[in-house]
Amino acid sequence: MKNIRVLTLMPTVPDTEYIHKCTSACAGCSSDLILRHVLKAAGPDTVLVVPACCTSVLQGVYPNTSFGIPVYNVAFASAAAVASGMAAAFEELGKNTNVIAYAGDGGTVDIGIQALSGALERGTNFLYICYDNEAYGNTGMQRSGSTPLGARTTTTPGGKPHQKKDLDRIIAAHHLPYMATSCSAYPQDIVRKVEKALSIKGPKFLHILAPCPPGWRYDTAKTIEVGKLAVRSGMWAMYEREYDTLTLSGQTKAAMMKPAPLEEYLKIQGRFSGLKPDTIAEIRQSMERNLRLLKKEAEGTC
């Protein structure tokens, strides 16, 4: 049993590429990286459903596409509902094609949450992935419900006055067979979680943090570093939940024992410049609360 565990922590990443090089994503885009690994894990019998977001742009301009699998572009609010229809149809047709909705945080926590909640509640056989760059990237970085407290965006020039929406607990309330969080800085973790998700029938959900150089305002070379700092500081927690059983991922367990300083994570990003000490304290408080709750839940003490 122990061996299997070790093996699944270090999966071999499939060689096949389903995204061509030189997409029109910004330099240092981590969403591109996430998608690359999602598709490696999913393989060729996959359809991607993409609402309006940066991913609609990075495919390139018709008649070109940078993807090696079919991508179905749909209206902003509709990804989960379109995927519902597609999943039902494939089932009806006797096909095992993976239906993956790949949506931004805006398309998930804001305009798309109604369709998502419906699809999850109906037990739709699909995987919904929210890549979270914590703002509306496509339209030039306006705040979303997923933008963290204090972050500057073009519609919160003085820093966002509201907390980041706790999407994962909303999703958890749907009691899914599988949901997980991950981060672009850990591609092997993404591959493993996508493979696992796709091996399960029913609704699956993945929430992946996607640092974004122009939006978060850091140097394009630091995308991995920023992602790792998010996890190591505890600002972003990685775990899996199978129905009501929560398992913390190793990176987050480590961060709980010996966290990197939160300030380091904030300092590296221009969007947090000029944060007041009160706001930092508030950010820390909600981060600690989140970790505390997760830890309790993982230990089965809540």
Binding site: S24, C26, A27, C29, C54, L58, V61
Partner: peptide
């Protein structure tokens, strides 16, 4: 404006 990102 085209549909391009930064750097195009």
């Amino acid at each position: 404006y085209g549909a391009e990102r930064r750097g195009a």
